[in-house]
């Protein structure tokens, strides 16, 4: 077991393994998204209150889910990097941040577009769920700005890991905001029983798993870039580049 982790953390091994793993994430992910989107848009019945506008849930919820998952990966990666000095763990944060920011942006914009016809507003200042999700976006921006402002990779890793860990409190606030305060946003649907008909729920789960798989593929690809850049002066990269088949 420990040998496996050790191998995983070895950059040349990981660089090659990630390349073979990517299609195993991307292809099932894309199939699930294709099914989920088609079913969510055309097969599933409209909602008794919201009509067809409710179909936005099929992109909004997976985006919001990933916006928090990506942050947690960033924070856990930073924590592991700080404690066990695993370089690859720090690379996870660097690779996950732009993806997390993209999905946070999507969650905010799709939520806003959904809120306009249903709630009657694009945005409500001071609403706990909306505000904390916006702060999540700023945390991603801050994390990326901090990283790019420090040239020394080891120091950038440490500083940004601390920021990521401090920001975890905001993810907790995002998650529980609809329970702790009165929010315009409704409560939990996905992992609660009896909130959704099975034929509406199955495509939603397909989208959630599909988005997660595609996110995994995108993260692995970015991790390869990170590993390659961080190891640019090592012998294995030199051998890789000089090998006849190359190593893109």
């Amino acid at each position: 077991m420990w040998k496996f982790f050790h191998q995983m953390a070895s950059p040349p091994y990981f660089y090659r393994l990630a390349a073979t793993l990517i299609p195993w994430f991307a292809i099932p992910g894309l199939i699930l998204i294709a099914y989920g989107a088609y079913a969510g848009l055309f097969l599933v019945s409209m909602d008794y209150q919201q009509g067809d506008a409710f179909r936005i849930i099929y992109v909004h919820v997976p985006s919001a889910y990933l916006s928090m998952m990506a942050y947690m990966m960033m924070a856990v990666g930073g924590g592991i990097g700080l404690i066990w000095r695993l370089k690859l763990a720090h690379a996870v944060g660097a690779a996950a941040a732009p993806l997390g920011a993209a999905f946070t942006f999507l969650a905010l914009v799709t939520g806003s577009i959904w809120g306009r016809p249903m709630w009657g507003t694009w945005w409500e200042w001071g609403d706990p769920r909306l505000t904390s999700e916006l702060i999540l976006l700023f945390l991603y921006f801050g994390y990326m700005a901090l990283r790019s402002s420090i040239d020394d990779t080891a120091k950038a890793d440490k500083a940004s890991a601390v920021l990521a860990l401090v920001g975890v409190v905001n993810v907790v606030i995002v998650h529980f905001s609809v329970e702790w305060w009165s929010s315009l946003h409704q409560g939990q649907t996905v992992f609660k029983k009896g909130t959704m008909d099975a034929d509406m729920r199955i495509p939603l789960f397909a989208m959630l798993i599909g988005f997660s798989f595609v996110f995994g593929a995108m993260l692995l690809r970015r991790l390869r870039t990170e590993v390659l850049f961080r190891e640019r002066r090592t012998r294995w990269v030199r051998e890789l580049v000089l090998s006849p088949e190359g190593g893109k």
Binding site: S45, Y48, I57, W119, G120, Q186, G187, T189
Partner: peptide, 15 residues
């Protein structure tokens, strides 16, 4: 200003 709230339950109109 009037804003509408909805709950976390989704179902088909027939249901």
């Amino acid at each position: 200003k009037i804003l509408a709230k909805h709950d976390e339950n989704y179902m088909a109109p027939e249901v």
